[in-house]
Design a protein around this nucleic acid. Sequence first.
DNA 1: ACAATTTAGTTGCAAATGATACTATTTTCC
DNA 2: GGAAAATAGTATCATTTGCAACTAAATTGT
Lengths: 169, 169
Amino acid sequence: MASARGTPQGGTGADDAPALDLADYLPYRLSVASNRTSALVSRAYQDRFDITLWEWRILAVLGNVEPKTAQELVEATAMDKVTVSRAVRGLDEKGFVARTRHKTDGRSTHIRLTEKGREIYETVAPVALTFEQILLEDMTPDEIAVLKSLLIRLQARAEALLSEGGDIR
Amino acid sequence: MASARGTPQGGTGADDAPALDLADYLPYRLSVASNRTSALVSRAYQDRFDITLWEWRILAVLGNVEPKTAQELVEATAMDKVTVSRAVRGLDEKGFVARTRHKTDGRSTHIRLTEKGREIYETVAPVALTFEQILLEDMTPDEIAVLKSLLIRLQARAEALLSEGGDIR
DNA sequence: ACAATTTAGTTGCAAATGATACTATTTTCC
DNA sequence: GGAAAATAGTATCATTTGCAACTAAATTGT
């Protein structure tokens, strides 16, 4: 009846549903926190080093282990293969990575940092770590560890649900 | 020197830099967890109710407090004004909200749920809450509370940095 | 009172993104 | 050995997004 319900939070407790408060809804909280953080990170990389966030992720992986195939980068970065393909092309055009033919699999390529790529990695990595520290400045190491581990569990759960039914029942 | 550095993690500890491991990098963890979760949520709303995630956020706010101006929705949903404008238009076209002239400010409009909008809100809200429960099934109430509160702190910190310098120094 | 500035909300356009289709190679398995 | 299926990576196209410009109304300051 289009009831003049107004704000339900004042109810006398006889309400049955737990009430939905967007501000306390985890997917929302997660999304906002992530967007704000990503905005900050993207801007830093883009402005100062002219690389996108996705390109940076590729660099970060290659900085540790080389070479990698595109497929391996997909797994390591949790980006989809189209995104990886475009990011690698971008890096290639800027001269940060080189692609060489995979010896045993003609469909695939080995991707590795060029000297220039190694240089930018060495430059950006400490900045990224410092940034993380600044972002987490007001949290204790304990809290940080908890946060990271909860995020990982959450992600695993979401992935399981995503493949499982796909739909929520 | 394009040093044949390979994987630094094996080092004998004499290394000075803390080493950047993408898998342990918070902005990355946050982004992946959020994307996975959002994918799940978006799909659920889109498939079953034909509303976008942004439209749903608007509904969720209006379900609690009506009416709201677009500007108030911007604040309540953390979406930017263009996104809100588009989402409200979508909801209007589907007949879920109505816009009426603001009495004292001619630039602005009051946005409120229609009866149909109230109905879909009442339908979706419990589904959303159930979904949250399923997603968080393997966490204790304590862990959930901690996660939410850490996310809020993180977001506040990111916002502060974002406005503050804009750039990271 | 009225010019200058600010604010609410929308629109237009360019860039980013995602789903799908496609090519080339490799693997499977009869 | 070779047809059928799978995989790596790229290209294409439609949709989404984000920025900047815009209109209209309100506020400010003189």
